[in-house]
Design a protein around this nucleic acid. Structure first.
Lengths: 204, 204, 204, 204
DNA sequence: AATGAATGAGCCTTCATTCAT
DNA sequence: GATGAATGAAGGCTCATTCAT
C-alpha cells in the first residue's frame, strides 16, 4: 500500500500511452476498410464500430470525433504509401531504372490499392470544403511531393524543374487511371505504364 | 366549346415543357450556389429549397431525388465551361496563340470560378463510390477531353498524342492550383500561368 | 342566341350527370386494380391517378377525397359480387342444389377474385377505426346478409335461424380460406368446397 | 483491477439482455394503447414514442423498424389472450361446462378487449398485402387453433372435426360481434353468448 | 373539364454525440 | 477502459390537397 514512486508512475503512463496508440492504430485499420468501401459521405460511425467489433461509445473514447478518426486513417495509410515509393526509388540506379521503378510502383498501386486511393481522393476533395481536413491533406501532399523530388534527384534530371509541378501532373494521370480501374470500363496496365513512362520521360 | 386543334395542343404541350425546363434551370442555378459553398456531403435539400425560395415538396416536383438534382447542377455548369473553352480556342490562330489563350482561360477560371470547380471535383470523387454519378462524370470528362483535343488540333501539334492523356495532365495541374487558391495559402496567377504554359509547350 | 328552355337545361344537366357518373365508374375500375394490389395503406392517389391515366387534380375533380374514392371502389365491386350470388341461387331448385350452387360460387370466387376480396377485408378492417368507412361497410354487409337469407329461404331450411349469424360463419370460413390462397401455402379447392358444404349442411 | 470471471461476465450479459427485453415489453405495452386506438395505418412512430415517453431515436434503439415493433405488440398480446383461453378451458369439466366457459370467455373478451382485437384484425388484414406480417399472423392463428382444439378435446366431441375449420367459424362470429360492439349500433351480450353457444353446440 | 404547379405537414429512419455506470 | 442507453436534430422523401388557369 506504499505510494508508487514518481518513476514508476512515469513508466506506467508511458506504457498506457503506447497501448492506447496501438489500439488506435488497430481501430484505424479496420475503419479504413469500411471507409474505402463506402466513402466519407456514406460511412457512419456505426459502420466503423461494428466492423471494429467495438461499441459506439468506445470509438469516442479513442477518437475525439468522426473527423479526427477519418484523418487518422487516411494519413496513416498515405504515409505508408509514400514510404513505399521512397524505398522503391532508393534501390534504383540510373535515370532509366528510376523511371522504370517509379512507373511500376505507381501503376501497380493503382490496381492493388484502388480502394485506398479513392478514399484519399475523397478526403482531399472534402478538404476543399472543410478546413479541418486541410492540415492532413497538406501533410500528405508534402510527403508525396518529397517522394517525387527524391525520384527526380535520383534520376539526375533537370534540377530547375519544380517538384510540386511534377507531382501535380503525376497525380492527374494517377487519378485518371484510377477512375478507369474503378469504373471498370477499361483497365489496361500496359496503357497505364506507357502513359507514366511518357510523362516521366518528359519531366525527369 | 370547340375542341382545340391538335396543333394547338401540341404547341401548348411544348410550351409547358419548355417552361418546366426553364424552371429546372433556374432552380439549378440557385442550388449550385449552395452546393458549391457547402459541398455535396453537407448540403441538404432543405438548404437548397430555402435558397431557391421553394418548398421542399416543389423541389421533388422538379427533380426525382437529391442525386438527380446534383447531377443536373454539375453537368449544366461544366457544359458551359467547356463551351467557353472551345470558343476561346476557336478564335486563336497559330500554336503560340492557342497556348496563350488556353492558358489564360484555364488560369483565370481557377480563380473566378473556384467554388464551382471544387463542386465538380467533389462530385467526381463521389462517382468513385456511387455509380449513380458515373454517367454524368463520364459525359463531362468527354466534353473536356474534346475541348483538349480541339486545342491540340488547332495548335497543329503532334497528332499522335492522346487527348485523354493530355487532359489528365492538365486536370492534375488545374486541381492542384485550385486547391492552392481555395486553401488560400498561395495564389500567384503568374505561377499558375507559367505552369500551364510549361505543360502545354511540352504536349501540344 | 335565344335562351335555352328550362326543359333543355334539365336534359342537358341530366346528360352531364350521367357522363360524370360513367367517368367515375371508369376511374373506379382502374383504381380498384391498384388498390387490390397494394392495399389501402400503401396506395396513394398518385398511384391511382397514374394507373387511370389522369392527373392528380382530375381525381379530386371527380372524388371529394381519398376516402370517398376508396369507398366508391369497394362498394361498387361488392355490389356486383352479391348480385352474382343472388343470381346463382335464383337458378337453383331444392335444398341440395342451392347448397351446391352456393358452395361453388363461394369457393370459386375465393380463387378468381382473391385480390378483390382482400381489399374488402382491408377496408372492413379500416372501418373498425375510421367511422367514415362504416356506412359503406354496413351497406355491403346488408347486401351479403340478404344474399345469405335468400339462399336459406330458397333452400327451405329452418326459418328461425338468423341470417346474420349464418353470414358471420360463412364469412369466417371464406376469409380463412382466402388467406390460405393468398399466402400461397395451401390451396385445395376440394377442401374449401368440403368445408363450405359441411357448414351449409349444418345451418341451412 | 482483477478481470471479472467468465461466470460474472455471462451473468452480467444475461442481466442486460433481460433488462432489454423488459424494456421492450414495456414499450410494447404503451405502443399497443396507441395502436389499438388509431390503427395500423394512422399510427406514427411519433405517436408511439410520445405515448411511451421516449424519443424517436430510442424507439429505433429497441426496435428495428415500425413493422417489427407492431408485430411485437400484436403477438405478445394475442399470446396472452390464447393462454387465457386455455386456462379457462382447463378448469372446465364436461361438455356443457366447456362450452359455457368458452362462450363466456369469448363473449366477455369481445367487450373488454374490443380495441385490442380490432388491432389484431387490422394487422391480419395487412398480412394479406404485406408478407412481412405473415409469419406473425400464422403464429398467432396457430395458437388460436390450438386453443380451439384443446376445447374440442376437453369437451369430448367428435374427434374427426378439423380444429382450423372450427376456429374459422368462431372467428367469423367473433369478428362480426366485435364490429357490432365497436360500431356501437348494438351490443347485446345475451345475443352474443347465445350465438356462440349455438355454434359450439353444433361443432363440439 | 381538366391539369400542372405548388405546398406544408408528416413520415420513417439515421446519425454523431453524451453520459451514467 | 469500455459500454449500453438515450437523445435531439436532421435527412430524404411522400402525400393529400388546393388553386389558378
Amino acid at each position: 500500500m506504499t505510494a508508487p514512486t514518481s518513476d514508476k508512475l512515469l513508466r506506467s503512463a508511458a506504457r498506457k500511452s503506447r497501448k492506447r496508440e496501438e489500439k488506435k492504430a488497430q481501430i484505424a485499420r479496420s475503419a479504413q476498410l469500411v471507409l474505402q468501401e463506402l466513402g466519407y459521405a456514406n460511412t457512419s460511425l456505426r459502420d466503423i464500430a461494428s466492423r471494429a467489433g467495438l461499441s459506439l461509445g468506445s470509438l469516442h473514447y479513442y477518437f475525439e470525433d468522426r473527423t479526427a478518426l477519418i484523418i487518422y486513417c487516411v494519413t496513416s495509410y498515405k504515409r505508408r504509401f509514400s514510404e513505399q515509393l521512397q524505398e522503391a526509388i532508393a534501390g534504383a540506379n540510373g535515370r532509366g531504372a528510376v523511371i522504370e521503378v517509379f512507373t511500376e510502383a505507381l501503376a501497380s498501386s493503382i490496381v492493388t490499392d484502388a480502394s485506398t486511393h479513392r478514399l484519399w481522393y475523397d478526403i482531399r476533395g472534402q478538404a476543399l470544403f472543410d478546413p479541418a481536413f486541410r492540415p492532413a491533406v497538406t501533410d500528405v501532399e508534402r510527403m508525396l511531393i518529397d517522394s517525387t523530388e527524391s525520384a527526380m534527384k535520383q534520376a539526375g534530371g533537370d534540377q530547375s524543374v519544380d517538384g510540386a509541378f511534377v507531382y501535380a501532373l503525376i497525380d492527374g494521370l494517377f487519378r485518371y487511371h484510377l477512375q478507369g480501374v474503378i469504373t471498370g470500363n477499361a483497365y489496361m496496365k500496359d496503357r497505364i505504364q506507357q502513359d507514366f513512362k511518357a510523362l516521366l520521360d518528359g519531366v525527369f
